[in-house]
Design a protein around this nucleic acid. Sequence first.
DNA 1: TTATTAATTAACCGAAAGGTTAAATGAGAT
DNA 2: ATCTCATTTAACCTTTCGGTTAATTAATAA
Lengths: 125, 125
Amino acid sequence: MADRLSSTFSALADPTRRAILARLSSGARSVTDLAEPHDMSLPAISKHLGVLERSGLIVRGRDAQWRPCRLRAQPLKEAVDWLEGYRRFWEESLDRLDDYLRELQARPPAPAKDQGRRPRKRPAR
Amino acid sequence: MADRLSSTFSALADPTRRAILARLSSGARSVTDLAEPHDMSLPAISKHLGVLERSGLIVRGRDAQWRPCRLRAQPLKEAVDWLEGYRRFWEESLDRLDDYLRELQARPPAPAKDQGRRPRKRPAR
DNA sequence: TTATTAATTAACCGAAAGGTTAAATGAGAT
DNA sequence: ATCTCATTTAACCTTTCGGTTAATTAATAA
């Protein structure tokens, strides 16, 4: 998987892990603490924490026999930065305009709604 | 995987798929067109497109023998919306302050009023 | 009809994900 | 020393992922 962005998205692609992050946003927590809301064995949680740690989304400290986890949001920022590159595609007004432009691109002159497809040599651009 | 957010993040957790989305941001493209920059078989690309389609990030049309793919950014918006909930954690100044507050939480400073170091029963909060 | 081009489906494969239980480790508390 | 609690590691299992090649479907061109 190698690259940071992939490992961040992959870490976020699990509801348990997102719930853990949500929990951590109100402060550091021990592992058992984090496990409590989940119907899942402790080792399973420990593995999830491993994934989050490897992707840089948490750091684990040491406090006697507890290993308090802390949120580190830097990778989240990187994810958002990537996603922002697509903002124009979901901004409402542009979205519609865009759909329209794409429609034009896909079926150049032709009557508005179309569907009646006559043979063409090249794919839509 | 079920939930939308998971399937979006999971779709984004692959560099090939992100590259495909990037390519689509300049307009609809045929499958072979999308495959061209990748050192990978066509069926592999087709599978990636299947993942993107199932997560709602693209739609596939029909134009003669071509299946032009179009970007649909709605799921990206949902991903960003989720991530925005963590913005305060990466905003620079707050980040430092936060680290400091968390440090305090984790190891309460030397007691103002005795407390005299004696074992603690509960983890840091 | 046959051939060509675009794309998907089928069948398979090895590796990684996500879970389990059981055993091991670490740090106090007694 | 020993007990107990918090957590991780080991070993295992099943499913999903990401890729392959070979065969199939769909549409057009000759």
